[in-house]
Computed example of a mutant assay.
Amino acid sequence: MHVVVVKEANLSTGIGADNQKTMAVAIGRSFSIQPGSLFNNKSLDRGSPAGRLSWLGDGAAATPRYRQTCVGAQQRPTWLPGLDPPPHLDGTLAGDFGFDPLGLAEDPASLRWYVQAELVHCRFAMLGVFGILVTDLLRVTGISKIPVWFEAGAVKYDFANTKTLFLVQLVLMGFVETKRYMDFVSPGSQAKEGSFFGLEASLKGLEPGYPGGPLLNPLGLAKDINNAHDWKLKEIKNGRLAMVAMLGIFVQASVTHVGPIDNLVEHLSNPWHKTIIQTLANSSS
């Protein structure tokens, strides 16, 4: 952070002279200029502009008035160092590093929707990475005969057929997403009494995109959502990392046709020769 400190010395003389202003600006440090202290140097020529300013500070009738203005010129971090962020991304949003090369979020209404969409994708990605790694670990260690994650959808389960599972998921997910959208359009509307089978107190949202209550916030984190910027930043960073991880898992499965734990075990067995470079080279040949 750089702080710009501006010191103004307004010098009014008793002989009707115009007000003179001396301004000094420092980046990264502050310093004071007293009227006459800089220019009362005998080495300065009295006929020069600096000498004339020093003469104004010497007069007994001079009545100095000081006014200090501190302007915060914070240079916030951006996704590309040295890049000026676009004006519609002012740093108030959690995880805002000025990344919008296509200008998709210039419209405020679109920006609100993109924020909620990113939150949902982040949370699904974090759940997806966790589920894939845990089930793959159980499968590789032999604890359970769970199919690899990209074949799980084609497996027939004994407790229900595929069509039934699909319809149940469609209804449940559709209901939840509809409620979320309604809360986005009209914040707080889904917390009104009678809007959710009498469970409103257990699902009381903090703000759109951040549900609360003992069911969705059992640890009571970030109860004061207006002062929870650090929690929001941590979530969005982990969510973005999870989305990148999911992309890596997709590509990995397409190239190697095995799960991530299998790939990790193979790499650890011969770290210098079982790498992504050798894997991509062998897959292309």
Rank of each mutant, 00 (worst) to 15 (best):
V3F: 08
V6Y: 14
L11Y: 14
L11P: 11
G14P: 11
G16T: 01
K21Y: 09
T22S: 08
A26R: 12
I27Q: 07
R29S: 08
F31N: 09
P35E: 02
P35Q: 05
G36N: 06
N40D: 13
N41I: 11
R46T: 12
S48R: 02
A50Y: 14
L53I: 15
S54F: 04
S54H: 08
D58M: 11
A61S: 11
T63M: 12
Y66K: 10
Y66E: 07
Q68C: 07
Q68A: 12
G72M: 00
R76A: 00
T78P: 04
L80D: 03
D84A: 12
P85Q: 03
P87E: 00
G91F: 12
A94V: 09
P101M: 06
L102E: 11
G103A: 03
L104Y: 15
P108D: 01
Y114R: 15
A117S: 03
A117V: 01
L119K: 15
H121W: 10
M126Y: 13
L127S: 13
G131R: 14
G131T: 13
L138F: 15
K145I: 00
V148G: 00
F150C: 03
E151S: 09
A152Y: 10
G153C: 06
Y157N: 09
Y157M: 03
F159E: 09
L165D: 08
F166N: 05
V168L: 15
V168I: 11
V168F: 14
Q169Y: 14
V176G: 06
R180M: 02
Y181M: 07
V185Y: 14
P187H: 00
P187D: 03
Q190V: 06
Q190A: 03
A191R: 04
K192Q: 11
E193F: 13
G194Y: 05
F196G: 11
G198M: 05
A201K: 15
S202H: 11
S202N: 10
P208Y: 04
P208K: 03
P208H: 04
Y210S: 09
G212I: 07
P214I: 04
N217L: 11
N217M: 10
P218N: 07
G220Y: 11
N226R: 15
N227G: 04
H229Q: 09
W231P: 02
I236L: 07
K237C: 07
N238Q: 14
L241Q: 15
L241S: 14
A242W: 03
V244T: 15
V244C: 02
Q252V: 04
Q252D: 13
A253I: 00
S254Y: 08
T256Q: 09
V258D: 06
I261F: 07
N263K: 06
L264K: 02
H267F: 04
P271C: 04
H273V: 05
H273T: 07
H273P: 00
Q278Y: 08
L280M: 10
L280W: 14
N282V: 01
S285L: 02
